[in-house]
Design a protein around this nucleic acid. Structure first.
Lengths: 114, 114
DNA sequence: CCCGGTGTTCGATGAATATCTTACAGTCCC
DNA sequence: GGGACTGTAAGATATTCATCGAACACCGGG
């Protein structure tokens, strides 16, 4: 078979949640965590599909990191795609902003920003 | 002594936090709770200084309720004033909105509102 | 085919926190 | 002053959740 450009494995695909189906409580809970805020911020500062899960400068082990990405997926904040052995990420900016206008902007704004 | 219109007792005044000094994480954590969301919503639907703490239709005891109001005060979301034996509340809409534009609107919006 | 690299899952642990019960401190009204 | 009412404080309990360690699955390359 013709090998695809970026091999799409037949692995357990990550479960995604449509931002349109996310409740306010779920969205706020997902963002009410320092590690996840950092992930979102770092992700926002990078081009889409360029950051693998392990490429983030966080202070937790990879098990916890995997959990955090699961929460972010469940809140419709992050989309993931398998690219060879690694899983690359994308911040669902427009979609999430359509569901919760302004929320992402607040998180991405530098914290001391009156 | 001349009794004041609404007697302001010499009781331990509630500790308030200026919304300008509240971090994003604190604000999101305060709002990431179903009981507190309900309190904020109910408060937004009432005139200022008209709702005492005990007048909310929540499913927790008054001790937990007092704790939730403490969290809301600490996030700059609610202002309290003693009015006789009861403590009346006000949602700090403008001040909080100046610090976190749009956040309160998201919480007050009916949950399925895309 | 073996191996290093990448993530996920599972179970357990620990910390944060939401809750209750009880006790206490004010305030108002009789 | 006594008593009903309102809210807070303190201590105990329970639940949620973030974290870790180890085991497993998958991919790509020698």
């Amino acid at each position: 078979m013709a090998s695809q450009a970026t091999g799409s494995g037949h692995r357990a695909a990550p479960v995604h949640t449509d931002p349109a189906e996310v409740s306010v409580l779920t969205a706020l809970s997902a963002l009410a965590d320092p590690v996840r805020i950092q992930l979102v911020r770092e992700l926002a500062g990078s081009a889409e599909w360029t950051r693998s899960c392990g490429s983030f400068d966080v202070s937790v082990g990879k098990a916890a990191l995997s959990h955090h990405f699961s929460v972010l997926r469940g809140a419709g904040l992050v989309e993931q795609r398998d690219q060879g052995p690694r899983r690359v990420n994308r911040l669902r900016r427009e979609e999430f902003d359509a569901r919760f206008p302004g929320l992402l902007d607040l998180v991405l704004r530098p914290d001391g920003s009156p």
